[in-house]
Write a protein that binds this DNA or RNA. Sequence first.
DNA 1: GACGCTAGTTCTTCCACAGGGCTTT
DNA 2: CTAAAGCCCTGTGGAAGAACTAGCG
Length: 410
Amino acid sequence: MGYLCDFCGEQRSIVYCRSDAASLCLSCDRNVHSANALSRRHSRTLVCERCNSQPAFVRCIEERISLCPNCDWVGHAGSNVSPAHKRQAVNCYSGCPSAAELSAIWSFLLDLPSVGDSTCEQGMGSMSISDNKPRDCQGSQGKNNTQDASFLVEDSDLNNMDVNKATVCIESCTSLDPKLQNADQLAGSSNSVMPKVFLPGEKGPVECEDDGFYDEFNMDEVDLSIENYEELFGVAHNPEDLFDNDGIDGLFGLKDMSGSDCHGAYPEGSSVGGMKMQPACSNAASADSVVSCKTEPNLCFTRQAHSSLSFSGLNGETSAADYQDCGVSSIVIMGEPPWGPPGPESSIPPSSRSDAVMRYKEKKKTRKFEKKVRYASRKARADVRRRVKGRFVKAGDAYDYDPLSQSRSC
DNA sequence: GACGCTAGTTCTTCCACAGGGCTTT
DNA sequence: CTAAAGCCCTGTGGAAGAACTAGCG
């Protein structure tokens, strides 16, 4: 018996939600993440079956066990016995996929003891996959939601990654190594999502080929979240600062990492810590499109400090999924962003107070990046609790805001 | 330079209540 | 010493309003 679900405390936890920092059984996963549009966007993956506390990113085929980067490292890279084990990348998913769809995502899913469990299986029945896949930088919407997990990962590939130096987290758990792409192709996946990591010399996604901004890029498009800014940039930071900005002109203009406002401290194209920072969609797509097409921080960079780059062990609280739940994500839900259309005219200051307020509210939401939810169950309840002017109301009382229905009782 | 005003931004407070954690039995 | 029961306090998100900051005359 593994660790119990953080929500019901009865079923064995199967999946890990980084946004909630919670391990959940499939039934509760469905219940919690079907609560509202935002929760459906939570990116989940299997929970590490060794430490039972971190999200798994790879599955050892020999041992038939899902492992987090750290346990994988300990079990494989640090072992003389099992480094040759074949491993399969474990994909993240969002929405409320059915058991069948989950099986499609995780072909090994049937190995899991709790899948097929009556309680959970029933709960999965009404699920459907929602589309929150990372999009390409030009706004072409994610064409595939189902993330094929049929990548065989050569041990050497994984071992080349320094999972202990959790620096960069690729949103898609499959984006571990360019070789995965080849493996994917070899596997003949029809609906796989191409990993977004490209080594120098490799051709990036078609979507970015015409983008002059990427001409010099060795890594055309990387969706990442920074877990250790100090290590990455060599300066103090605040995660929120990456998004602490004043509208479109500052959306991806990194701020003074020491905490005080300093717009343009890292102008477009400037080299930071050996990495060339660029807005992911710095021209036609614009920050607007970035927000629309991608909910995590999109940072394209030239991997100048090649050896210094390492991929996250997915063990931090500030994973890509965390950002996914931030205000940036909410922009997509709420429709048009408060700022105007992209382009030169975007530098025009907001003309109305309402725009400023809206901008501030979006900004405020992004600030919640730094907030660590200690109790996922409380968050889940708060997320669905009815309110009056933002305050919780007694059950049964009149309310003016219902997160579940977005409606009013009066 | 000090002052007042305006606008924009940031911070604090409030609410209900499940559940964590501590004390008592 | 362990388990159960009871109680107290924490933490959760959205909105309002206070507080703060910057710019201008």
